[in-house]
């Protein structure tokens, strides 16, 4: 059952403040992921402590890196249920967890960060993993 929207609003704003675009409906998700070109980060947001204390701060740090995705989008697990389920269909090889991060390049998942790789880890460590993935998958090939 979704939380009171007023309670989760700050969790949404934290993402939009760092430049993420919220996908709150199935059409939103399909428009963003249906024919995805270029590089994209999809963040599955969550109300849990590891999203607040670990994942979102890590994203904020990682998105300051020189190499980063062209687009950052987010769905909210437990809140925008249908949109989240639809987004997960675009990376269905990976078991659902939240928070989690998918990196896509031209519609293909090139990297995935599961909840178990986020929980209990400091944001700096998670951000370092993300920026390494950005460099590896989104960097310019010479």
């Amino acid at each position: 059952m979704p939380y009171n929207p007023a309670l989760v609003a700050p969790m949404r704003e934290e993402m939009t403040d760092m430049g993420a675009r919220e996908l709150t409906t199935v059409p939103d998700v399909d428009a963003a992921l249906g024919d995805q070109k270029g590089t994209m980060l999809v963040f599955v947001n969550s109300v849990c402590g590891c999203a607040a204390g670990n994942a979102r701060p890590a994203l904020r740090l990682a998105l300051q890196h020189g190499v980063k995705p062209q687009q950052v989008v987010t769905v909210f697990a437990g809140q925008d249920v249908d949109a989240t389920a639809r987004a997960r269909q675009y990376f269905s090889d990976y078991q659902p967890s939240s928070p989690s991060v998918a990196l896509l390049r031209d519609g293909e998942v090139v990297h995935f960060v599961h909840r178990h790789q986020i929980e209990g880890r400091p944001p700096q460590a998670i951000a370092a993993d993300l920026t390494a993935a950005f460099d590896r998958h989104f960097g310019v090939t010479v």
Partner: peptide
């Protein structure tokens, strides 16, 4: 990160995938 309690009022492993 050893020694860091994820949820201070719970078991050290609460919320952790084991």
């Amino acid at each position: 990160m050893t020694g860091r309690i994820f949820h201070p009022d719970r078991h050290e492993l609460h919320g952790i995938t084991v």
